[in-house]
Amino acid sequence: MSKSNDSGRRDFLKKAVVASSVTVAPGVILHTLQAQAEPRTTPVTDKVRWGMLIDTSKCAEGCKDCVEACNKENGLDLVDKPEGASEELWERQRPHWIRQVKLKDNMTGMLTNLVMMCQHCEHPPCVDVCPTGASFKRVDGIVMVDRHICIGCRYCMMACPYKARSFIHADVAAKLTHTPRGKGCVESCNFCVHRLDNGQTTTACQDACKHQAIVFGDLKDPESPVSKALKKYPSVQIRADLKLNTGVRYTNI
């Protein structure tokens, strides 16, 4: 793809995002939304499918804002290293709901930063392999683990093409009320489901991204910022060959 073409595309997305931020108006309208947000009293429906668009060209080198916000929101920063575990082991095993991935084009040397989390597949392999039904897809498209049913077998971790799931290896001393967690279960990004169910409309990672690389919303609502951006701008699914129809899409990879 030529340079001019590329910058044209970027301008396009910028416009799309500017347009969307009128609707979403981070910081201003969102706060009033949150103040009025009510917990839902009716079951979630399949009229909504939550999804996300990540613009890798905006994802800045060295920035960890989304990961830190996710860790804080979901209490991942409260999980301590098990006694006796080495730093190296801990880095590999500690729960990650968002991973930062660097892609390098070996021909050109071009580097791309992207964030990788549960892709909330329409046809999730983790759900297929789960022997207990703990791994499930909610009707609104969120792929989650019911930890009351999870037996910790970790088949889902093996089945996930995105390495999106983590296992809790030891007892957890401190937890937030809205994110219970304990030894022996698998977990992963759930699009901040506790926020959505309480009437909020954003995820913690999206709110934290000052580069506006993350657009979140309802894929079935043609007027939602994420649908508008997807319509205007070419995007890809990672490992599209697997035909999982991911709810998380990327631009500028």
């Binding site: 009510e38 839902r40 009293t41 009716t42 079951p43 959505l196 309480n198």
Partner: peptide
């Protein structure tokens, strides 16, 4: 309430465990 919350997204009920605590 546990199943309602996790599978259907209804969390704010008076039967929530967080509420008991």
């Amino acid at each position: 309430q546990r199943d309602l919350a996790v599978h259907q997204g209804i969390r704010g009920s008076k039967h929530s465990l967080a509420g008991c605590v």
